[in-house]
Design a protein around this nucleic acid. Structure first.
Lengths: 214, 214
DNA sequence: TATTGCCCTGACTATCTGGTCAGCTTTCAC
DNA sequence: GTGAAAGCTGACCAGATAGTCAGGGCAATA
């Protein structure tokens, strides 16, 4: 039995997941306003009323999709060890972020859309957690600057450079592909991006005295 | 008379502009699918049928808004002088891009939405022009690297860092404000961003031997 | 004054969309 | 087997939405 006293059957869960996957695609490609319940049902291979059996409304369905996305992000925001080496902390963050956008492009794009819309649906909790995490990292960066372990730099701008660039590759997929003249970016492309971005961040912080070959 | 043989009256042009401004706001905030012709009419202070008098359909109205946006971008993509000093070329580009997003946040966000959607409405011409401009800049950067005037760096990644970061401040308005804990970013905030970004780009290229105070 | 043609609008419609519901089938505990 | 609850669905609906159109106003020209 689930929390509402309903039996949990594999059949029911399977359909629920089917619908959620279809909905994620639809919301990713068209946004909340552009998404159509009928199309979500068709692509999931179920009648529309079945979608409404599992999700009371379009908003409820979007909420369910969004909370999956949010869980992904939360799991990735690992706490930072301020005693650790600046170079490796920054490198870990960059690689984590690139990997996240590579593995979950749909989630990244849904998140991006939400942000672009002024995150009307996004929970206060996630907003707060994102802000607190950014503030903690900024504070650590400031400490490193005071300790002269890295060059002076606006911590928030540095965080935004990393954030913005990694997001960009997922958000502006079409634009990036157009400029690269590729149908899609490969694993190797993402690895090169990660290497390149790590190197750039290190140079910004003065952590790469000998220029590495790119 | 205009191209269709209609008299051009200040009254008619005024209304057209009124409707276009209202439409730009609506499309910026809600996207094409979320926009409502009725709301566009209401905010312009005209009846809905008047909107349809000037613009045959919602798509035609969106096209008109988008072509204004495109004109803005085209005007800003100044040709690059490859003989010029790398430091100032990169600085000019960064400052131009920051200024553009600061002065035309609505246009920037409409453009961002279009890109996020895989630019379905965007003309082949603009796609080509953007790609050609990026390729020209990338080629110049590669020349500078060969001439050892700047450190080795992946040119496209560098361009995307600049592009992504400046876009990010316009796109993720809500997120940025949330992390800065500000209602809106001031002119001074943008100036600081530009200074900071110029400094970071210069460090990436090894153009700032003596670290500047930030 | 009459004519012409842009400018404008209220009232209307076809269509689409999220959502409902009565009633059917399947599953499972006893 | 049987009762009950979960799983499921076709048919339907109310409201919203883009778009239409007949006709009125109005300024300029003849």
């Amino acid at each position: 039995m689930d929390s509402r006293g309903r039996r949990i059957t594999t059949l029911g869960n399977h359909r629920r997941e089917q619908i959620l996957r279809s909905a994620e695609k639809e919301f990713e490609q068209l946004g909340f306003a552009g998404a159509r319940m009928q199309r979500i049902a068709d692509n999931a291979g179920v009648p529309k009323s079945n979608v409404h059996y599992y999700f009371a409304s379009k908003e409820a369905l979007y909420d369910a999709v969004l909370s999956n996305v949010v869980d992904l992000w939360n799991a990735a925001l690992a706490p930072i060890d301020p005693e650790a080496d600046p170079a490796s902390v920054l490198e870990d963050y960059v690689r984590m972020k690139v990997e996240l956008t590579r593995r979950y492009p749909a989630a990244t794009r849904i998140f991006a859309r939400e942000v672009l819309n002024g995150w009307p649906f996004l929970s206060e909790r996630l907003k707060r957690e994102t802000r607190e995490w950014a503030e903690a990292l900024a504070a650590d960066i400031e400490t490193w600057i005071r300790q002269e372990r890295i060059l002076p730099v606006d911590p928030r701008h540095l965080i935004f450079v990393i954030w913005a660039t990694t997001q960009h590759y997922a958000e502006s997929d079409a634009q990036v592909r157009s400029i690269y003249r590729k149908r899609r970016l490969s694993r190797a492309d993402h690895d090169r991006l990660a290497d390149s971005l790590v190197s750039m961040v290190h140079r910004i912080c003065g952590l790469e005295p000998t220029p590495a070959p790119v």
